[in-house]
Every structure is written in C-alpha cells, then in structure tokens.
Write a protein that binds this DNA or RNA. Structure first.
Lengths: 351, 351
DNA sequence: CGTTATATGGAGAACGTTCTACATTATCGA
DNA sequence: TCGATAATGTAGAACGTTCTCCATATAACG
C-alpha cells in the first residue's frame, strides 16, 4: 500500500531455486539440500520439495552450480575423432554415466598440444568435476600440474609412476606380444612391425609400448633384441608413399604387425592395388579390432582392447576419485586376439 | 596494528579478475571491459590490463561468465559418434572456431531422444552461447521451444519452414537425384534404394529427403512415381539379415543406391561373401564419401556432401545469429558425385 | 526435570563474472 | 569562458547456486 510497492519487475521467467523454495514454502537452503541429497532432510520436506520441482519443471543452472560447488559434469578430451577406436571409449563413458546424475562433455583436440591445453583449462574453468583424457599428448608433469586442480584419469597413457592422476590402459606391451605370438604360431618367422612416425607420440604413448612388446616377443622367440620396425608418417602424402615403398621392398617380410587398424587397413588396400596377396604373400595383423576390420571385405585379424570397457573403467575410477579416494590407481586390461583371414586363410584358432 | 588485523585467509590461490585489477591498479569493471573489448577503454588502460593478465596468467572462469553473461562456448550435439560422417562436421566447426575466442563442447546423444533432450537442457543450463544440433531426432516444435532460450542451428534437419532456428543442409534430394542420374548414365535401368528402417528418422531427416529425391529422379526417368525402396533396420542382427535377403532375392535389381556409406559398405562385404560381384552383378552407390569408401579395398562410389563444409557454414551461421541477426536462414549446399569401381569398372567420369 | 545429544530447517555469505548507472575528466564550439 | 558533448573509468548490484554456521525442536538419559 505504501510507496514501496515495488513489485519487482520479475520479467525473468526462469524457474530458479528460489521459485521452487517459494512454491514449496521452504527455504532456498532446504531445496539445495534436497537436490544434493545432503544430510538433515526429513521425508516430509523431501517430498514437498520434490513435488515442487516436478510441478515447476525446475532444472538447476549448471553455470551457477559450477561457480559455487560441483557441476556434475565430467569432461572428456579426445585427441582425435577420426580414429574409430575413440568413439568406443565414449560409448563406455556414456554408459556408466547414464544412470548417474553426471553428464559428459567432450572436447576434441585434433592432436594439437596448444588446443589440448586450452581445452583442459576451459574444462577446469567450467569447474567440471573431473577429466578423462584419452591418449593425451601432454607431458606427464603438465598433466600432474592440472591434476592438482581437478581429478584426472588418463586413458591410453602409460605412466604407472604418476602419483597425481590415475591411468587406465590396455596392456599394450602384452597386446603386441600376443600379436607376435599369433604370427609365430602360424609359422611366420620373418616379422616386421609398422609403427607410427618418429615425431608422434612420446615414450608413454601406446605406440611406443607396442613397440616394446613387439621387440620383447621377438627377442623371446630368438630373433635378437632389435627386430625391425618401420615408421609410418601420419600425414597423408608421405603415409601412403612409405607404405608402398614397404610393400615393394625386395626384402619385404613375410608377416607384419601394424600398430593400429587404421594403418593396417590402408596397407591392405595398397597391397591389393599392388598385387601383393594377403595372407599368401604377406600376413597382416592390426590393433583395435575396429568395426571396419570385421567387415568381410577387409577381414583383418586384430588385437581387441575393448575401448568401451576402457571407457567404463576410466569413468568408474574417476568417480571414485571425485568422491574422495586419494592415491593414484593404475589399471591394466589384457587385450585379446581376434583371428581373421589376413592372418591365415584357414583362420583356425591360433595357439 | 588494531584488532581487525584480519589478513583474510587468502588460502585460495586462484587468479581472479580481482587479482588482475589489483595488480594493474584499476577497477574490476575495467578489466572486464578489456576482456570483452567493450566500449570505453583507452589504449593505456588496455595495455596495463593486458600486461597484468599476461603476467598473472589469468583465465576468466567460464562458470562465472556463464552465470552473468556469455560463456563463449558453443555446444555441439551429435546424434551418434560412430558414423564417420559426423567427425567431419566437428572438424569444420573446430576449424572456424579455432581463431575466435569461442570453444566447442560436444555432447553425444546416441540417438536417444531422452538423452538428446537432457543434453540440450544441460547446454542451456551452462548458458552456452549457441547450439549446433547435428541430425537431431527431436520434432521441430520442441527444437523451436529450445530455440526461444538459445540460438540454434540444425544441421541435417530439413525444415525450411522453421522460423525459430536456422538450418544448414546438403541438398539431400538433389544428392539422391545425382546418384540415380549416375546409375542411369551407366546404363542401369533396374534400380532400387536401400534406406533406413521405418521407425528411424522423421519426415525432416536426411534419409527421407534422399528417398524423395530418389523417387523423383526415377519418375523423371520414366519409372513411375513409386520406385522400390527397401528399408534396412538399424539393429545389428536384423540388419545383416535383411541385406542378405535383398542380395539373394530372385528379382534383385541391377543397381542399388544406399542412403549411407555405412550400409553400402556392409552390403559390399556381404555381397562378396555371397558371391555377388560388384559392379558386374550389382552396381552400388553410397552416400557421404567416407574415408572407408575411398579405400582401394572398398572402392565405393559415393555422393560427397562435405561434412566439413557443413560444419563450417553452420558455425558461421550460428555466430551471426549469436551476434544479433534475427530471422531464420536456411542454407543448402549441393553435393557431388565421386565415381569409383562399385559404379562401373571403367570408372570413367560420368555425365 | 534438567541436561545433553541429535535431527531438522534456515540465514546469509561466498563464488567470479557482467553490466547498468553514474562520476569524472577531456574536448569542442560558440 | 561557458556550457554541451564525448570519452573514460568505477561502484555495486545482479546472476543462481552451495555450504557453513546457527537456531530451534525433539529425543534420550540420568
């Protein structure tokens, strides 16, 4: 009635926690407590608030949440979106997250360290609750520095010595050994590995681990400690060229282990073009067991490391860390062999 | 010296806008202005602030930004991460965004409407500046409802009548026509289309558009208005089964147009297994010109719609809308034919 | 009954920005 | 020299949560 009939403009129609509180006839704090199901809430209160939330269709603002507390979002950083192995990891992450109140937001770094850094920083600035880095390029110390600000799990990053963050990996050394053992079991002796170009990937990358496994298995089989490895550049023009050179080499090996299906499949294609028969002239085994490898047209034997499972495990590990675990965990999974025609025509189970 | 020697705990080492302001000896508002390069900043001030930002390594909190104003983030919603066409779109988006101060955050809906909705809501709740929806499943009215809250550009969603949001598409009708014309030019007359199962995709989806284009081109060529279309279910067990049935049909057509490379490639694989020669017994043309199609091993003719370009255009359109444009834009791109061996062995340029 | 423990709800200060409204100073005609 | 206009900088109120204290009510215990 008095002059202060302000009647706040209220032109903003957004339903906030205050609207809910008013509607339920309780305090803002009470609503917040119910949302986070924190301690000190009676059944009656919870019911009233829940009903109000329902009735108003209230959704908490993630931005505001992030400013003060948790945002219930976890960030996933992908090095590359083209490699068909990575989507599998995402599927695993989403699968675990679906029933929870967490959500995944994905950033793609396109293998550029610059972008990778700024994406991680952004995710921290969003106050995300945790990060899953898939095959990051950053050196361990940098990741550790970030890990001081946000829980981090690295996937496909072999650094079992890390204390600041967790790692989840397929045992890439073992995977390479399994590949070599499969080739040996088929009777091949003259074996070479096709790996990734020098400049790509550091010591902790999966590629280097597979090289180590390859060399160890070869040595164990009595071929000395420096079994031959050919490096394939990643850039398109040089890439095919190097493969063609490999295929037309006089002393081309009888069997080849490729660090990834992506390369193995291109190799298969070039081999066909150049009249090199697989597996009669050259046996090929890849890595990742991608869906393309399974195509009848391709029929590429491969090491399966279940990206989906990796994603699931990484997510669970991250959540446990978010919820308070301290002390780093380093988890390994054992990959398995999927035998197909590129290994041997009989395609009989190996080993 | 007095009792109020509070000396604020200051255990928080985060560099905020306040830290910068203090360091530069200016107000908080001044720093904010420089950050957003708003009106009313002298060169001297800008220099001082910029220097302080540099020196302190200051990064604005995205969470706080989102709470008050713009967050300089745009959300991208992918229906599926497995389809190799979609990563191309992302690449396009990232390419345009890289030099700007915007960043992309990606959500994957796995083709589930439920998840798609909640992901969009999350992005709104994050106060993202705009959304790019790639091949969304949601009906137009729902998208329009969301568009009232945030600028939206839909890619791969044919709704030129939408007034609330923009659309960016390849002309899928025209693409299908081009495919049919290519098959006709090779002399094939008995042509069928392999499309996506009934339940997937609404009228505005790319699939249905391609069906329309297919039928129109066939009609134009004098084959009546109801050229045959076989629907392939999306789920793995039924999917292959239906394709096998198609391949072993008595009245199998001489040529087939597949709505996507993904299906076309599986078809190629099954054909090989079943001894159906391509293109001698069956010519195949796909859609998307995915990298797999280009493999020598696969050699699938395909319609190229440049996902990268789609992503670029969508991003530019979104930004222009964020920056104030009103009134919907509906952009079309013309796809092109990439001829390969699955079309004809001679592989001569068609038309 | 008095005392202490426990459960429940609320007040209100953060969190780190943006942005409106205002204060001050410089510039410019006339 | 005076006013008007433009340019530059600042104070301080949002924004929508979370979360630490507090206040009260109830239960438990001797």
């Amino acid at each position: 009635m008095s002059i202060e009939e302000k009647q706040k403009p209220q032109r903003n129609d957004r339903v906030t926690i205050r609207t809910v509180a008013k509607h339920a006839g309780v305090s803002v704090a009470a609503v917040s407590k119910v949302m986070r199901n924190a301690y000190g809430v009676s059944e009656a209160l919870r019911a009233r608030v829940t009903e109000a939330i329902e009735a108003l269709g209230y959704r908490p603002s993630r931005a505001a949440r992030g400013l003060r507390g948790r945002s219930f979002t976890i960030g996933v950083l992908l090095i590359d979106i083209r490699n068909p192995f990575l989507p599998e990891v995402i599927a695993g992450v989403n699968g675990v997250l679906a029933p929870s109140h967490y959500q995944a937001m994905i950033g793609v770094s396109d293998a550029r360290v610059q972008l990778e850094t700024s994406l991680i920083e952004s995710m921290i600035d969003y106050k995300m609750d945790g990060l899953i880095l898939v095959a990051p390029r950053l050196p361990s110390e940098i990741i550790a520095k970030f890990a001081a600000q946000i829980p981090i799990v690295a996937v496909g990053y072999h650094d079992a010595g890390a204390t600041a963050f967790d790692t989840v990996n397929a045992d890439d050394q073992r995977g390479a050994e399994i590949a070599v053992e499969a080739l040996l079991a088929c009777g091949y002796r003259d074996i070479e590995m096709l790996s990734l170009g020098e400049r790509e990937g550091h010591q902790v990358s999966v590629v280097r681990q597979r090289e180590i496994g390859f060399r160890r298995a070869m040595q164990r089989a009595g071929f000395g400690s420096s079994a031959p490895i050919t490096k394939i550049p990643i850039a398109p023009p040089k890439r095919e060229e190097t493969m063609r050179k490999f295929l037309s080499r006089k002393n081309r090996p009888r069997a080849v282990f490729c660090w990834s299906d992506l390369d193995a499949i291109t190799l298969l294609s070039l081999a066909m073009e150049m009249g090199v028969r697989v597996p009669e002239d050259l046996a090929v085994i890849g890595y990742d067991n991608s869906s393309t490898a399974a195509l009848g047209l391709v029929n590429l034997a491969s090491i399966d490391q279940s990206g989906r499972e990796l994603g699931q495990v990484a997510t669970r590990t991250l959540i446990s860390r978010i919820e308070g675990r301290i002390g780093a965990e380093h988890i390994f999974q054992i990959p398995s062999l999927v035998s197909r025609n590129s290994l041997t025509l009989s395609n009989a189970p190996v080993t």
